[in-house]
Nucleic acid binder design. Sequence first.
DNA 1: CGAAGCAACCTAACACTGTCAAGATGCTTG
DNA 2: CAAGCATCTTGACAGTGTTAGGTTGCTTCG
Lengths: 219, 219
Amino acid sequence: MSIEFSRTSVSRSPRKRKGQGGERREEILAEALRLIGERGVQGVSTRQIAEAVGISQPSLYAYFPSRDAIVEELHDRAFVLLVQALDQFRPTPGKPLEQAVEYLRVYVDFGLQNPDAYRVAFMIEGAAKPKPPVADPSAKPAMQAFDRLREAVRTLHLNGGAYKADPEALAQCLWAGLHGLVSLLIARPNFPWAEREALIRTHLILLARGVLNDDQAAA
Amino acid sequence: MSIEFSRTSVSRSPRKRKGQGGERREEILAEALRLIGERGVQGVSTRQIAEAVGISQPSLYAYFPSRDAIVEELHDRAFVLLVQALDQFRPTPGKPLEQAVEYLRVYVDFGLQNPDAYRVAFMIEGAAKPKPPVADPSAKPAMQAFDRLREAVRTLHLNGGAYKADPEALAQCLWAGLHGLVSLLIARPNFPWAEREALIRTHLILLARGVLNDDQAAA
DNA sequence: CGAAGCAACCTAACACTGTCAAGATGCTTG
DNA sequence: CAAGCATCTTGACAGTGTTAGGTTGCTTCG
């Protein structure tokens, strides 16, 4: 890598006072997210994070059991932000199709406006190394985010009967459709995309039309 | 990592004869893909690949300029396989909707049957480190694969007029929709998915309905 | 005020990683 | 048989995540 400037003792941050270790934790997470945004999840080392925070690198292990634990915490926090964004949505009165499009748009905009968080949340290759199954998966922020989509589909179902299909499957299709667009837009910025605004609208209308029945879609 | 068995000289492969260096190249790629399938892209080291092939680890650098070059070659080859799969498709006569669903299904099945290849092709975080732009991007296998989707949408457009929207954007929506489902199914095997067959059919019908116009979809 | 206790933090070291430099080996052709 | 060169090796370097063990210095209690 060969960094130019001096590597020896770069402006250490003053030692935290006795009960304030939590502050360090937050600083670590903040710097980690910032660096990941610049260099990608794989491009950031614990030494770089520690140097940005202003502590020695093994000190990280006083706050996190491993490097992956830092990423995982960012992962969970990203989902919390997503859930907040979805919950803050208040539909403007109008056609069901437009309302559905608006709601799905919240997901897309979240991803595009917080690409670092979205990357960490969805696009890390954590798989292939089997992790011990977590105690209560439904408590994880990721599941709570999906619950919002499930709930949205169910509401549409009640409010006039959506396209005849398992609502659970429909919600998963919605999620897959949204994730596909967002992840590709983030991961492949060099692809010759169509004009972004039109592309997103087309995609969301396509998805919404698939979930709504024909009457709702036409209304 | 701490491997049990002996590390010193584990059954070297005999030296290739003079013009046969290409064989080694293929062996390296094969072992690399196999190991990546087992342990994930990040979980495989050049030393592990070299040991599996039966050569010393720096020997890899006689065939590839870097570790990433190995992954990238696998990446391109995965797309070639995808293009082949798409090109081999011959529709069974029937309704336009069913034909479209069948065609999209080729993409999904390819991803699910070749998860290693699909991972390497689509789900590696190659971004964030800006690569020098390739000379002719349209020559890359990835682009050729997308061309197939573009062509499919255009055919539908001619054969009766698809949903009114930019065909290019529609093709990109299709791709995003397909990729979303495949990548999530591969990356999140522990998610409480709906029954897979029904899920895929629901998703593909949703996408196809979005591209076809109402008459075609109903026919 | 002084001393105990412990949170906060550090240095040193380990096994691993990708990559480079320089040399040895041995098939193949003249 | 000898030259030439593709093939492959050993050795080293700087980087990585992680652990062990020791030091610092704030805080609280006697």
